[in-house]
């Protein structure tokens, strides 16, 4: 699955980079190569392919490396030639034939990995936004709709790619779950259970309330000061009033949230 995905990505890369060269969009070509090499290849494929059972793994990695060296060569002639020579190639990379995209890949749904990748990114973001400590293992429930079968087959992959999920339940659909972190990717719904540490969260929120109340009080004092209101430019006073409004709204939200815990 990830193999199809990366080979398709490489295919697209070859086409786009070639077009860029022909249109003198050198920086765009460089950006695409960087994106593929660091994001698609290093961050995703190299991670994901450890969890895939594939007899072609070595061959595919070799194929990707070979093409990537060719595509990078105009930009980084020395280092690519150096690696090429380490691959025990007899000919020089400098005169290696420029690749053309392979015929479009049709094996399976080539976007399966992309869907999974999106869900993984969403889970990571949700954890970060909710300040879930990286080491903390949590349970997740995913209502995956038409992708349920795919997800069920790839639970190990999802658990392994830095999502911090110890237990993963996949369903086509289901009831809303209370007390969980909620996120969505299109029609796919994700619930992160037990990620909300109520005690900790309560302490955190209470701290926030205390802090806000302090600021609000100081600000109210300032605005009650006749000298300030009369002497300061209208714009400055107005700005202070707006700030106060913002803080008051935030305080209200936090107070509601703490009731729901």
């Amino acid at each position: 699955m990830a193999e199809d995905w990366i080979l398709n990505k490489l295919n697209v890369l070859i086409k786009d980079v070639t077009d860029d060269f022909n249109n003198y969009n050198f920086s765009s070509a460089g950006e695409r190569l960087r994106e593929f090499t660091w994001n698609d290849l290093a961050d995703w494929y190299l991670e994901a392919n450890k969890f895939e059972n594939s007899s072609q793994r070595g061959q595919i990695l070799y194929y990707i490396l070979k093409n990537l060296l060719i595509l990078w060569h105009p930009f980084a002639p020395f280092i690519t030639e150096a690696v090429w020579q380490e691959m025990d190639k007899k000919e020089l990379l400098m005169v290696e034939k420029w690749p053309t995209p392979l015929a479009p890949l049709v094996r399976g749904e080539k976007n399966d990995f992309a869907v999974i990748k999106n869900v993984i990114i969403t889970i990571r973001n949700a954890r970060a936004e909710n300040k879930v400590e990286p080491a903390r293992k949590i349970k997740a429930v995913i209502y995956a709709g038409k992708h349920a079968e795919l997800f069920a087959a790839q639970t190990e992959l999802i658990k392994s790619l830095r999502t911090g999920i110890s237990e993963l339940e996949i369903k086509v659909s289901g009831e809303k779950i209370a007390g969980a972190i909620y996120a969505a990717v299109g029609e796919i719904e994700i619930y992160l259970l037990g990620a909300l540490d109520e005690v900790k969260e309560k302490v955190r929120l209470e701290k926030g309330i205390a802090n806000l109340e302090k600021i609000i009080k100081a600000n109210e004092g300032k605005l009650a000061n006749k000298e300030f209101v009369d002497k300061a430019p209208e714009a400055v006073v107005e700005k202070e009033r707006q700030k106060l409004k913002g803080w008051q709204a935030e305080l209200k939200k936090i107070k509601e949230q703490i009731k729901h815990l």
């Binding site: 070595g58 070799y62 020395f78 030639e81 150096a82 690696v83 380490e86 020089l92 400098m94």
Partner: peptide
């Protein structure tokens, strides 16, 4: 196939002069 460990860091001095010479000679 590539079955060896490459150095973790690329030191231009270790390669570039020799590579340029090889290119020229080719």
């Amino acid at each position: 196939m590539l079955n060896k460990e490459l150095p973790k860091q690329y030191h231009p001095a270790d390669y570039e002069e020799a590579i340029y010479a090889r290119w020229e000679k080719s």
